[in-house]
Amino acid sequence: MKIEALKELGFEMIVEEKGEIFHGYACDLLSEVMGRAKPDTVWFTVQSHINIIAVAVITGIRAIVLCNGHDYDEGTIERSKKEGISLFKTELNTFEAIKKLCNVMQDEIQG
């Protein structure tokens, strides 16, 4: 699915970058994400500090959805623009956010 389609699900877009995503992943432990996330993934997390961009760049994560109404650090937003990573946020918790994605995009996105 196209990254911008996440906007239509009600997630607030903070940084827009073009691209497609084929996988989803949810976890807040960075080493777990590092070891397991596939390339072209949308990542659901509650971590908002700048290091998540490094994790995304290295694993090939294309978009991040920050859950529970948290806000991104200023540095995170800046870096994501530089590295071409899309950022979204939502008031929903991680489970609810993923449920929403799956309801609409069930066939287009894999674990």
Partner: peptide, 15 residues
């Protein structure tokens, strides 16, 4: 709290 220190670092490296 930042999501570090899960104790998976060295085993990720080894893997």
């Amino acid at each position: 709290e930042y999501g570090f220190g899960a104790g998976m670092g060295l085993s990720n490296m080894k893997k």
